[in-house]
Amino acid sequence: MILSLTDAKLDYPKTTAFQHFSLTVEDGEMVSIIGRSGCGKTSLLYTIAGLLPLSGGTMQRAFGNEGVALMFQQDRLLPWKRIIDNVLLGLSKEKTEEAATFLRSMGLGTVMHHYPHELSGGMRQRVALARALIRKPNILLLDEPLASLDEQQREMLQNDIKKYVRDQGITLLLVTHSIQEAVFMGSRIVMMTNKGVSYELKNQLHDDPNLRTRDEFFSMQKTLRLHLEATR
């Protein structure tokens, strides 16, 4: 077990983001959390990252704040820093060589001395991914990081994230409103509303390289869609 939430609840001054949320994540698992907008997905992720404190329930983490890397919906690259320095944000300069090698391995070698505005949206998110992975986190939290990309870039980055996360043995927790993305990325798909988990699905074909073209890929999406409709 790397993460466990029991009857978790988060209150904002005027509303409740989510409540009665329980989830246990095993080491190396890739969990997709799906739900309608406003169901508290992002708040949940921020709570796990340590950015927001729980208002009720308990959370156990087998990692410290240093063991979490959060990738936001927007790339949040600092416009005044070169790509390599954005990746090294908060890290010591001694890691420069390691970061450069890592960027090259991610196909960003030619742009590492560029500024963020010189890159396309897909490249920028790729840099944000590098910034998260260079920290060698125990758990990677993704807050719909691909929502603003076009389909081609999105699929490419989905493949890459899956590959890097698996290669490095990182646990993945992805929050998304895209059913397709949830099924492709997750070995387990958890559907949430602001009253807790409403449905769960195991993706047996998660490791299948041809997942996108398998019939089950579509049937799982259909099942999830029906359940999502039911939460309305």
């Binding site: 936001f72 820093k81 920290r135």
Partner: peptide, 21 residues
């Protein structure tokens, strides 16, 4: 605010927040 939140999420020290953001 996004940049300041980023600073918290990536555990920047006070000095780094001042210098980098």
């Amino acid at each position: 605010f996004e940049f300041l939140q980023l600073a918290v999420a990536y555990h920047l020290s006070r000095k780094q927040v001042l210098k980098d953001i």
